[in-house]
Nucleic acid binder design. Structure first.
Lengths: 213, 213
DNA sequence: CGGAAATTTGACCAGTTGGAAAAAATGTTA
DNA sequence: TAACATTTTTTCCAACTGGTCAAATTTCCG
């Protein structure tokens, strides 16, 4: 009786496959409409099955959302976890930025799911934010501070540095429509991520002030 | 018959007042739940009136949303409009960043309303993005490019520069929960905007690479 | 005051929502 | 193939959704 209900863990091939299909469809819907704006019917149709059939695999709308959110949070924090205290500061930060930008490019739906959750005040994720996330950021902020103390990078606020990396990279997933609209047809194509990568490297390395001499 | 319907323009004191109350309440609801996630009942209750009463002042949910969106877009673009080609480049950019950050601090709900709209693919704002916004950004990008040509600021992509300013400043409104959670009780208070301002100035001016000598 | 205009309310409606129940269909395995 | 477990469909429901309408109330102005 203390067992996890059958639906929580897939036991058959069909369960595994269908759950994946459902989660993928749900990610599409939740990431664009948010939790309250999404409907089970919508998800079911996108998954190519009837609503009651979908509810055979997940007990509720909330369960699907929870699964997506926890699943993506893990993925989401990988790049920051990879920031290596033993590595060379500037290349470490550069590759962190690059990796985060790649995530925005390759997992835009996950980024938007998270953004939706934040906009709503993180009702389902506040514990993770104040727990695991804060712990991880505190840890990496110390690493960055030690790099500053060694004079390897300029002295600033490590927390806001991390925020600025999150903001600038995720922007290309969350505000994709705006980015495309502003860049127009000619520059809004696939090349925009390389342009962004080049720009962000410039920005975070040297800022805007012209080099002297 | 070609008149704008009475409800569009307030004629009495009560209409003016109530419409303001409704718009304020609707801003709260729309900015946290998005368009589809918000309900008229919710807005009406937040505005302290019954649903039919609210619908006496606005003909539909969409009308309220449209009013909020167009109203805020104007406000939102003011700082960029103020970027002066004749001014000193570095101070101009610095004060643009500062102003955008102040907007994130003073109008977080408007920022979230806009963010929600972007996440959903800008169904109600795509015209503005491809029209007015693109035109304005094209214009200001040229200004920035001329500053680069004069050697007043370092040479990079002006579009992505603008994106990065939007991203880093709006982050403090849209991801406020996360920012607070990560900074914790001690640093997550009112001082976070000043810290952010200081950091962003550092970042955009000089980047992270340590100064030589 | 008194009447007209503006405002508010209560009852209502058709469509949608998340979800339950049970029966029917399908798969699996001895 | 028979017995069993899994999967799918059909039907249904109560709550909620955006919105209407007429009646009741309040405000405004001469």
């Amino acid at each position: 009786m203390t067992d996890t209900p059958a639906k929580a863990r897939p036991r058959t091939r069909i369960q595994r496959e269908k759950q994946d299909v459902i989660l993928d469809a749900a990610l599409n819907v939740f990431s664009t409409h948010g939790f309250r704006g999404a409907t089970i019917d919508q998800i079911a149709e996108a998954a190519g099955m009837s609503k009651p059939n979908l509810l055979y695999y997940f007990t509720s709308k909330e369960e699907i959302h929870r699964r997506l959110l926890t699943g993506m949070l893990d993925l989401w924090l990988d790049p920051l976890r990879a920031l290596d205290a033993e590595g060379d500061p500037m290349p470490e930060l550069r590759s962190y930025i690059r990796r985060k930008l790649e995530m925005a490019r390759d997992f835009p739906r996950e980024s938007r799911l998270f953004a939706n959750e934040m906009l709503q005040g993180a009702p389902h994720a506040i514990d993770v934010l104040e727990g695991e996330l804060k712990t991880l950021v505190d840890d990496k902020a110390k690493v960055i501070e030690s790099w500053m103390a060694e004079g390897k990078i300029r002295r600033t606020d490590p927390y806001h540095l991390i925020f600025s990396i999150w903001a600038t990279t995720q922007h290309y997933a969350d505000f994709d429509v705006q980015v495309r609209a502003v860049l127009g047809k000619d520059r809004g194509g696939d090349g925009r991520f390389e342009d962004a990568a080049r720009f962000l490297e410039h920005l975070f390395m040297d800022g805007l002030r012209p080099a002297k001499g």
